[in-house]
Design a protein around this nucleic acid. Structure first.
Lengths: 170, 170
DNA sequence: ACAGCGAGTTCACAAAAGAAACCTACGTAA
DNA sequence: TTACGTAGGTTTCTTTTGTGAACTCGCTGT
């Protein structure tokens, strides 16, 4: 799969999707956040086939999103836990949860909600600017080539902007 | 695919993944944010096979994330644009971009960066509590059954918490 | 000695993705 | 007129990936 800008120049989203861009990995990670740790736990909870679960868990361990830890000897038994890298996927899952609740679940029928321990309220996550703390959306931000962008990325950006009849949506 | 809590009770993340949980849809949406609109644009930019692209675009239109609009008559030509629902996926893509930049791209080598038009700075998106505006992470939040949660969800939550030797990671 | 648990592996089959050629309808240029 | 280019697909065939169900292995408790 050529997931990047024209064969080269890694897009961070594409790189992420290479690790967790299949149908099951995000759900495995979601369950890991809920506290599921064991092979059979994931399997029963998700209804995923054992073969694919094995493959996904191995890939997630390889990607250092989960770590496999022995919790018992004789017979050796292992469980899967989130690493720091994995735990930092929390904002991704949260924004997904928010979108799903907003657009796919009838209002007032949410099956999951978020509690902020700090203030004790049921809350929604909000994305703000790290600099001025104002909420951000596609309309008030622009993505642009970064310091590691080669010519091909810069050109890809230009090309897209040029080809669009109107302004880009982002 | 049984993507929900034990066959019933829709998890918002699972519902989202049912619409955009394959390898290509997120990249198609990313490109749509960049301003790509045409079939051939997506195809060349992503290197996706035309057959799969057709299927994905149709599914995204069906999901009301993209809309198909005629931009020319004789011969009729169509382009794909983000709907409001689609544009609200922006936070999901942004948090993915941030994680990818942080964990998969060497520091200072980012190919994409975010500019906040409001304050003119290169920024990172930050997730905060909608109530008290404090930054939120897995550690200071808890997910819990919502108003639409049936018995099975409540039990699933309890079951997971009970089965974990230690505290959940979220 | 036999059942059960936890964490897998194996295998036959089905579904999905990929690559490349083909189709349709029009406009242009030789 | 034949040919070429462009845009937005469809068709066909091959390869990859996922599924479901059964099987394994090392131990424990009865």
């Amino acid at each position: 799969m050529t997931i990047n800008f024209q064969l080269e120049a890694p897009c961070p989203i594409a790189l992420l999707l290479e690790l967790v861009g299949d149908r099951w990995s995000p759900l495995i990670i979601r369950d890991a956040f809920y506290g599921v740790r064991r092979f059979d736990g994931f399997q029963q909870h998700l209804g995923i086939s054992r073969k694919v679960l094995t493959m996904r868990l191995n890939a997630l361990v390889q990607a250092e999103i989960l770590k496999r830890e022995r919790y018992q000897v004789k017979p050796d038994r292992y469980e899967y836990r989130l690493t720091i890298k994995g735990r930092e996927l929390f904002p991704v899952l949260l924004t997904m949860m928010r979108w799903g609740n907003r657009w796919l679940v009838p209002a007032g029928q949410e099956t999951v909600q978020l509690l902020h321990i700090g203030c004790g309220e049921k809350i929604e996550p909000k994305l703000v600017c790290s600099h001025c703390d104002e909420p951000i959306s596609a309309a008030d931000t622009r993505t642009m080539p970064g310091p590691g962008a080669g010519l091909e990325v810069v050109q890809a950006f230009r090309q897209i902007v040029r080809k669009s009849e109107h302004k880009p949506d982002m």
